[in-house]
Every structure is written in structure tokens, then in C-alpha cells.
Computed example of a mutant assay.
Amino acid sequence: MSTPHTLLPVPTLESAFDVTVELGPIEDHHSTSAGSRRVVPILGGRISGAVDAEILAGGADWQLIRPDGTIEIDSRYTARTASGDHLLLHARGLRTGPPEVLDRLRRGEDVDPREYVFRTTVQIETAATHLADLQRSLFVAAAQRQAKAVRYRAYRVD
């Protein structure tokens, strides 16, 4: 006997695009009413794959650090394609792992991304009609924090 839940489709992932985000120095806002807050300026970068674009300076990642060291990610930034179309990207997620690994990341060391979990969802907004499929899709990403950049691969959830 099947229940209505057994009829639900199982989502699949399709590789969509790769992103490198260049980061500025961390702005430590210390403990606020929401918790330990940091803002990381976005200086530029590249998107390649389902869409190719240059990430523009001016975005940021507003981070909230939980007591266990887990970081809540909330990044918003703009990219521009070669034809001049703008994309607004919003990435939300978590970066977590063992305390010693998180300490190494905090010091700017290169850490194997398999030693910690850094996952986000990515949503895209654009006025470009030929890119409208991007804003009708949900993307999940596996990411890596480097000393002055974040790299991630985004997968379309089908």
C-alpha cells in the first residue's frame, strides 16, 4: 500500500555553475543583539558554467557566528554578463566543522573542504528574459573557504 508521500518525486542535482568570490578583510562587529556578527566585503570574482559573468565589487557576506563556531552565511552580490545583463545572487547557508578545523579556517589556512561542511542555497534574480530560467531554479552549493576567496560549485535542484 502506498501513501501520498511515496508518490513524491526525489529531487536530483545537476551541476550548473562554478563561482569564485574574492573577499576583502573581515569587519568584526563583535557581539550584537543577534550574536557575534562579521561582515565580509565582496571585491569581485567570476561565475562560469550555465551563465558566465563577472562578480562586481560592493556585495557582502553578513555572518552570524553561533556559540559552537558554526557560521550562518548570508551573502548578497551582483554579477554582470559580457552582454551587460545583471544578476543578483543570494547565498544562504552554514559553515561548520570540528573546532580545530574552524580555527585553521579563521587563521586563513588552506583546509581541505572535506574536513568541514560549507553548504549554501543560491537564488538568482535578473531582468534578462533569456536568463529567466535561473530565477525559476533553486541551487545548492558545496563551498570552500580560502584565505581571500570562497569557491563553490552550484547544482540545480530538479
Rank of each mutant, 00 (worst) to 15 (best):
2 S>F: 09
127 A>M: 13
125 E>A: 14
8 L>Q: 10
151 R>H: 10
128 A>N: 00
85 D>P: 07
94 L>E: 08
32 T>P: 11
8 L>I: 04
66 R>T: 10
143 A>T: 13
111 V>W: 01
110 D>Y: 11
156 R>K: 11
80 R>A: 09
53 A>E: 00
153 R>Y: 11
104 R>M: 02
139 F>V: 05
33 S>P: 14
20 T>M: 03
97 G>V: 06
121 T>M: 13
93 G>H: 02
22 E>V: 09
37 R>A: 06
115 E>S: 09
65 I>N: 01
18 D>K: 03
66 R>A: 13
106 R>S: 12
16 A>D: 12
93 G>M: 00
79 A>I: 08
122 V>G: 00
26 I>G: 01
146 Q>Y: 06
50 A>I: 08
54 E>T: 12
30 H>S: 10
34 A>M: 13
75 S>H: 10
113 P>I: 00
49 G>K: 08
97 G>Q: 08
6 T>Q: 11
80 R>P: 09
105 L>N: 02
40 V>E: 04
38 R>G: 01
134 L>W: 15
157 V>Y: 03
133 D>W: 12
101 V>H: 00
79 A>P: 12
28 D>R: 07
158 D>G: 03
32 T>M: 07
21 V>D: 07
13 L>T: 07
80 R>I: 01
6 T>V: 03
33 S>C: 15
25 P>Y: 11
156 R>Q: 11
82 A>M: 12
7 L>H: 12
143 A>M: 09
23 L>R: 06
33 S>M: 15
57 A>E: 15
103 D>I: 00
77 Y>N: 06
55 I>W: 09
82 A>D: 15
54 E>S: 03
127 A>R: 09
119 R>V: 14
65 I>K: 09
68 D>P: 02
32 T>C: 05
143 A>V: 05
100 E>G: 01
32 T>K: 03
45 G>T: 10
111 V>D: 09
36 S>A: 15
80 R>V: 14
133 D>R: 10
94 L>V: 11
57 A>D: 12
30 H>C: 08
32 T>G: 11
9 P>Y: 07
156 R>W: 08
122 V>S: 03
130 H>M: 08
81 T>S: 03
36 S>R: 15
81 T>W: 11
18 D>N: 04
143 A>I: 05
116 Y>C: 02
121 T>V: 11
29 H>G: 01
112 D>Y: 01
13 L>S: 05
77 Y>P: 04
25 P>N: 15
45 G>D: 07
57 A>G: 13
65 I>H: 03
66 R>N: 14
4 P>M: 00
49 G>A: 04
104 R>G: 04
11 P>T: 00
86 H>L: 15
99 P>S: 11
134 L>N: 05
135 Q>D: 09
75 S>D: 06
91 A>L: 06
26 I>D: 02
33 S>H: 15
90 H>G: 01
44 G>V: 13
2 S>N: 14
67 P>E: 02
13 L>E: 12
14 E>N: 12
115 E>W: 02
129 T>R: 13
75 S>N: 10
126 T>P: 06
16 A>H: 10
92 R>N: 07
